[in-house]
Amino acid sequence: MRPPIDSGTVLITGASSGIGREIARQLARRARTIVLVARRVERMEELREELHARNPTLGVVVERCDLSHPEEVDSLLDSLHRHLVQVDVLVNNAGLGDYSLYEEESWSRIHQMLQVNVTAPVLLAHRLLRRMVERGRGGILNISSGGARVFVPGLAVYTGTKRFLDGFTEALRLELLGTGVVVTQVAPGPVETEFSEVAGTQEQQERAPSWLRISAAQCASEALEGFERAVPLVYPGFAYRWMMRLSSLVPRPVMRAGGLVAARKLRHDTSLLEPGHPDARLGERLLLAGGPDGH
């Protein structure tokens, strides 16, 4: 069973940069219509021109939407319904995170992450899935994170939301077997996007060996390849894929011990910052996977 990408309508959240933008580029010659969803309209308009250059017959719909506000998600879907846009494939790519000690987080940041990483993909799937099942064809591609499978001090809320997406996707996939709707989860590791720069996690990203890092284009390509084969879980990148498979054999206490080292370093580094230092509140650095809109 394959998701109806060819000559279908694909909705991509977080489409203005990073993995979302690359998925749009790679689907430009195949899809009938691509719906780009993000906050940065300028970037999406530029991408629309690029996609039209690749495929002049492609329909490209640009929808500005702040996914941290469920009412805007509802408005987006209502707008598509009014314009008779029938979504065949949903790509939940947008994601937010924040690198900080948890007690330093503001509730507004935490709430924003929960809305974008949990509420938005669940709401979109709920509103679109029934019609996919009725038609007997459809697809949902959820871009999660390798962080859902490990312990990452400093990203407690982010990894927590990705663990939710992991469990949600796995259970949903089982429910939909035999319905014609394909569900795949992608759990990337170090991908060369704006993620670390905006997050303030460049140091951690740079410490990752070069053989472990991949480009956003490679990540998108492997994600789509796995999706078309109806693979339940995709780890993009050969070295990273084997590292994650082996990590599943590591006992939980050992993983905790490794996480404890990182946690102590984070707390120590934070305590050294003087009040008023630009980084004194790490939580003020918003982590947006691939920028303000997606991975």
Score class of each variant (00 low, 15 high):
residue 12 I to V: 06
residue 13 T to V: 09
residue 14 G to M: 10
residue 17 S to W: 02
residue 21 R to L: 15
residue 22 E to R: 10
residue 22 E to D: 07
residue 23 I to M: 08
residue 28 A to K: 07
residue 34 I to T: 04
residue 37 V to Q: 04
residue 41 V to L: 09
residue 49 E to T: 13
residue 57 T to Y: 11
residue 62 V to L: 03
residue 63 E to R: 10
residue 65 C to N: 00
residue 70 P to T: 04
residue 74 D to A: 09
residue 75 S to L: 11
residue 75 S to W: 10
residue 77 L to K: 02
residue 77 L to S: 01
residue 84 L to V: 10
residue 84 L to K: 14
residue 85 V to T: 12
residue 87 V to T: 02
residue 91 V to Y: 07
residue 92 N to G: 03
residue 94 A to K: 01
residue 99 Y to M: 05
residue 103 E to T: 12
residue 104 E to I: 00
residue 105 E to K: 04
residue 110 I to P: 02
residue 113 M to G: 05
residue 116 V to M: 13
residue 123 L to R: 14
residue 124 L to H: 01
residue 125 A to V: 09
residue 131 R to Q: 14
residue 133 V to N: 06
residue 133 V to Q: 09
residue 133 V to A: 11
residue 138 G to A: 05
residue 140 I to T: 05
residue 142 N to V: 03
residue 147 G to M: 00
residue 148 A to Q: 03
residue 155 L to R: 07
residue 155 L to A: 11
residue 156 A to Q: 11
residue 161 T to R: 01
residue 164 F to L: 11
residue 165 L to C: 05
residue 167 G to W: 11
residue 167 G to N: 14
residue 169 T to I: 03
residue 171 A to W: 10
residue 179 T to F: 08
residue 181 V to F: 03
residue 183 V to C: 02
residue 187 A to H: 09
residue 191 V to M: 01
residue 197 E to W: 12
residue 197 E to S: 12
residue 199 A to D: 02
residue 202 Q to P: 07
residue 204 Q to H: 10
residue 214 I to D: 08
residue 214 I to G: 03
residue 223 A to Q: 05
residue 225 E to T: 15
residue 225 E to M: 09
residue 228 E to V: 13
residue 229 R to A: 10
residue 239 A to F: 12
residue 241 R to I: 09
residue 243 M to W: 13
residue 246 L to F: 10
residue 248 S to D: 12
residue 248 S to F: 10
residue 250 V to T: 11
residue 256 R to T: 08
residue 257 A to N: 09
residue 260 L to H: 15
residue 261 V to D: 07
residue 263 A to N: 07
residue 266 L to G: 02
residue 268 H to Q: 11
residue 278 P to S: 05
residue 279 D to I: 06
residue 283 G to C: 03
residue 287 L to D: 00
residue 292 P to E: 04
